[in-house]
Amino acid sequence: MLEIKGLCKCYNGESILDNFEMQVGKGQIFGMIGANGTGKSTVIKILAGLINPDQGRILMDGAPFLSNVNTMKRMVGYIPDNFGIYENLTVKEYMEFFSASYGLRGLKGRDRWETLLEWVGMTEHKDDFLEHLSRGMKQRICLARVLIHDPQLILVDEPVAGMDPVTRSVVKEILKKLKEEEKIIVVSSHVLTEMTDLCTHIGIMDKGQMLIQGEQSEVFRRINMSNPLHIIVLEGQDQAVALLKRDASVQSISMEGGHIAIQFDGDEQDESNLLSTLIGYGIRIQAFYREPGSLESLFMEVTKERAGES
């Protein structure tokens, strides 16, 4: 498990990370979500050993993570936002360079990068120059090279920017495989819609702090509790409204035909009780659901709350 505790980083007196906290377990794809300049890349770069934090602790399975640079680098695979591609090398030469950089030479190295090229579907391009490949292909090559030393922690900075559908599906497929291999994957992005598909866990960042984090469905659930509850009634609308008015958890009711939307203050148990009551009174219900939140609405909600607090 990766744990970040009280991480602080300042540049020229300006605080980029302020008591930042994060936990990511094995087999999780953790999406760090935040607007530009919220400190996502700084966290990624600290984890990749490229920047030193001013304060705070990073633990991997309970042990200090940054204390031994070599051990740390062996554990980390880092994809920067621009991929770090050498345009004037062929795919094969690029893979050879990175495998040699991790001490994998000769047949051992070759076997490894050939397998990875196969994974990302780029085997037939191994003799092509990187400058002649599309952005999506470069992304796939970059993903292959980052896995060359079989890292435990994979850091991906803004992976979805400009990703074509084929690459997106390849990347998703590979991340899924890595998840099954119990790797820890941290992805940062400001493209929220893409993260919904990609991540199992999410954390929302603002002004250098993690505002909310957890399993995606759980985070949604927590935030969605403030969303309206929709009830589509086929028969007995008036009776349903009367029952709803009697419920203490119902804050407001709006109705349009058989579609009733209520602001409901209760938890999932209260929702279940309410549904049972309605059915118990013989009201025919076609649908009963919380309005689903999007990552955008979730992000806006959380950052709005924070703005309100400050």
Partner: peptide
């Protein structure tokens, strides 16, 4: 400048 530096120094080199 080509932004390959971070990739290079994040390896065991």
């Amino acid at each position: 400048e080509k932004r390959t530096f971070d990739s290079m120094v994040s390896t065991l080199l």
